[in-house]
Design a protein around this nucleic acid. Sequence first.
DNA 1: TTAAACCGTGCAAACGTTTGCCTATCCAAA
DNA 2: TTTGGATAGGCAAACGTTTGCACGGTTTAA
Lengths: 334, 334
Amino acid sequence: MPAPPTIKEIARRLNISASTVSRALHDHPSIGLRTKMRVQQLAAELKYEPNQTAIFFQQRKTFTIGVILPELSEAFFSAAISGIEDMAGRHQYSVLMGQSHDEEEREKQIVGTMKKHRVDGLIISIAKNTKDYSHFVSLQQAGIPTVFFDRIPNLADIHYVACDMVSGTVQAVKFLLSKGHRVIGMINGPEKLLASRQREEGYIKAMQKHRLKYDPTLVVSSDLTREGTDKAMSKLLSQKRVPSAIVAFNDYVALDAVQFAMKKKYKINEDLTFVSYANLPINHYTAFPPMASVEQFPYIQGQRATEALLEILSDPSSPWKKITLESQLVIHTP
Amino acid sequence: MPAPPTIKEIARRLNISASTVSRALHDHPSIGLRTKMRVQQLAAELKYEPNQTAIFFQQRKTFTIGVILPELSEAFFSAAISGIEDMAGRHQYSVLMGQSHDEEEREKQIVGTMKKHRVDGLIISIAKNTKDYSHFVSLQQAGIPTVFFDRIPNLADIHYVACDMVSGTVQAVKFLLSKGHRVIGMINGPEKLLASRQREEGYIKAMQKHRLKYDPTLVVSSDLTREGTDKAMSKLLSQKRVPSAIVAFNDYVALDAVQFAMKKKYKINEDLTFVSYANLPINHYTAFPPMASVEQFPYIQGQRATEALLEILSDPSSPWKKITLESQLVIHTP
DNA sequence: TTAAACCGTGCAAACGTTTGCCTATCCAAA
DNA sequence: TTTGGATAGGCAAACGTTTGCACGGTTTAA
């Protein structure tokens, strides 16, 4: 491993100055054709590659964006990161990765690393139990543009990309109504989550539009564990008005709920129809998938977040990006 | 965004030299306690953060490892990258990501970017249709240690981590034999793949151990598309000896095969038992998952690859790492 | 009392690249 | 012959940090 060739080296060999070499390599107009050729040829011969670390340092810019996600191995996030990487790559940006494992401490630490690496900007989906936002504020102070994505903190002036669950939920409930269901249950998530509130809002909205009265006992909440879902299900199925269809908070919940219902001898999607929110790529394959899923387009969200960030980077005075994608019901045709 | 504080700035304010500040910040023994304190206090006040880009440049080391994978959104790879990130993070390394989308061109381009970024080392799972390895050779020339992982190129002197499918296949076939199956089919992948050869080898080995003769007509191959799998299945099910159990190349193939079999009114895991190789995290949830899966531990593979790379980085003279993990049969208890 | 040892600090170079400004040469127009 | 403008290229500083070496001062041992 001989030291890689540098501009200086080329300059020395050609008996010209480093600045000339640099300009020649960049096709600067004030360099004569002769020298330009000589430089470029020698550079090719030596397989010269610019030392980006030097350039990053000198330009105070790294052409790198940091991405902090809760869990890289979750289908939703890995789709998102795929979108991020594609869009970033298309614009010659690199992607630095970190996963918080939904822990606030780790998240703060990664933010620190990213800051030290002098990433040009960040895309973050915050950890579940992050309560303190000081590390995000410090990013603002440091002048590192940040686009939040999917899980966004409750702060005033931020850029974000998120997916509105209201519209998707309205579609989901309407779909069930159109299939003749009149008693529709919902297994929602923890009440403090924005995602939960949006789902409930959509549920109510759809019912009202159809001039049906909203029965709160049909909306139960699960802590998203299997036990929580089992509890929610047994509550739902033991009430006076037993639903003929259920909207589940997400695919994991739906699958738990399906298993519960199967144990109770319900015929899935006959006695009891399920609709869910997609995070698993499996509907194709499961024997009793939900009949329809509200799709959140993680890949596209990732792309849009990256796009937004790149725009901010090229125009730092650009206004707050508040991008909301519409979720959309996808009906599974078996 | 005022310019972030630098060592120079601290030095100026304290009327001492930059070198003293640098040393004080690093707890260098030759700096007096008084100055050390003063420096560290001011640094804290100013929220000084070392400019890593300067350090990277100066140290010719970036504490960054590059990862190039075919597809970030595939469950197998996203699990792997999770392992990589965890292990890297534990050692204060960052991870730079790239996905090749299984295209040779893109792969080469990413290798170039990684080189320019001066990553300390690389972990690569090569693209399906990469035929030309020159970009990998150039990495060697540039002195960038590279650990290949799962999909490894056919080159002599390389580091790699892979998972041996032979042992897992032997276990899988044994498992089926122990369940009383005597006619066991296999849907294998394209014959040129190492992965396919290993599966067949395992199949034969297991049969021989049980003094059963190897019937080649029971091993058919699919191009891994649904159509290919359907074709393979219909071949398998229309022969004289119809298998009562099938070993499928992977989960995707297995699920396609299951659907095919269901259409033909087979009762899954009763008339026809399936065993597969895991790449989906869904066995828990599917109604008719394979009865068992050969697990390849992508997360662990990722970790081990990273471990290996870190060792190489700390001891560049270390010998070629050729790490083979044993695959292992996991029996799904419903 | 002198020399040696030690302590705390500063100097300056180096890492590779870019860029504002200056200079030298040449040619043409006045 | 002077002026003036291209044209082609060099100088040097700057980015922030680290580190080998030297320096002046104080203490310690002989």
